[in-house]
Design a binder for these strands. Sequence first.
DNA 1: GCCAACGTTGGC
DNA 2: GCCAACGTTGGC
Length: 154
Amino acid sequence: MTNYWLMKSEPDCFSIDDLATRTTQSEAWDGVRNYQARNMMRDQMQLGDRVFFYHSNTKVPGIAGIASISRTSYPDPTQFQADSQYFDPKATAAKPIWYLVDVQFEQKLPQLISLERLRRQPGLEDMVLLRKGSRLSITPVTAEQWHIILSLQP
DNA sequence: GCCAACGTTGGC
DNA sequence: GCCAACGTTGGC
């Protein structure tokens, strides 16, 4: 069973173009330090799961592209690196705290689907992303929501 | 285990 | 830059 997800990234930090221009066109999704988001990566994400790549904290936030899960969860190496902003002194190799997955570029959307557009779209009312106060950087998407959103493309 | 204080997220 | 909504921390 393929699952669907939405993963947020600040484009000033790492954008869909950055993912596309990586030599492998894939990237370890490091730095997630929220337990709910970690649990989804660690326990639920499967090889080949589809991902909406979302640009957050930018002028026009929205879905910028599509990616997929190319490696299932393993310990986030940055938690062990003292010089990393994501360093966690409580984590050990024997008992890692944070996990990540690898994300593979699939396509950049010809046109960004804005958050404002998503909010106007019937059928997406229950999207976790759109819930009041929702701040999770990784959220599940239903198959129905996925297909509605793909149908919005020109 | 409660909860006030504090830090972060992210839209606007 | 503001601030609402959350999550985390730590004293008790």
